[in-house]
Amino acid sequence: MSGPHDRQSIEITRRQVLEAGTIVTMSGMLPVAAEAQTSSSQLPPENGSTVQVSFQINGQPSTLEIDARASLLDMLRERLGLVGAKKGCDHGQCGACTVHIDGRRVASCLTVAAKVDGRKVTTIEGIGSADALHPMQQAFIDHDALQCGYCTPGQIMAAIACVKEGHASTPEDIREYMSGNICRCGAYVGIVASIEQAAPQIERG
């Protein structure tokens, strides 16, 4: 067992304490998108026939030469380092990969990546920020609408779309229109409550 007496004391000033604190906070806020930029500059080689895809990703233009059979989900995760969308089934059966294309929710695992040429793709990385959460994200925290968190990005993308579509006016409607997103931890009660809370703060699309 080690304790304070094993350690050397170092003189530090209050200023150093504050600086250290600041540095910690900064590095803790390093966005995932930064990773995306580094890794997209070192993209792995593509195998098989490729196709060029130009699209907007979270508001930024992007062009990729990509294997024509790749899914949008694998493009986001394995090429762009945008790992918020998750793979839970790879067959459109769970909703963990939900993203928006031109503002509409889709299953990115069943979307051929080449199809997003000329389209606008929004992922969870494009929703809210660390110091300004989207109302739906805040509601998910308030109602603890998550446990392991793996399906959560997909749930939130689906939930925002659910409100914008006008399918969030009753709990029954929410349950039905959120049934494409499986939560194995069973956070459904919290998810419905979150959507009811956030809906008035979100404009219908």
Partner: peptide, 9 residues
């Protein structure tokens, strides 16, 4: 860890 999770981070 909810904050990280709702941000997809």
């Amino acid at each position: 860890d909810a904050h990280e999770k709702v941000l997809g981070r």
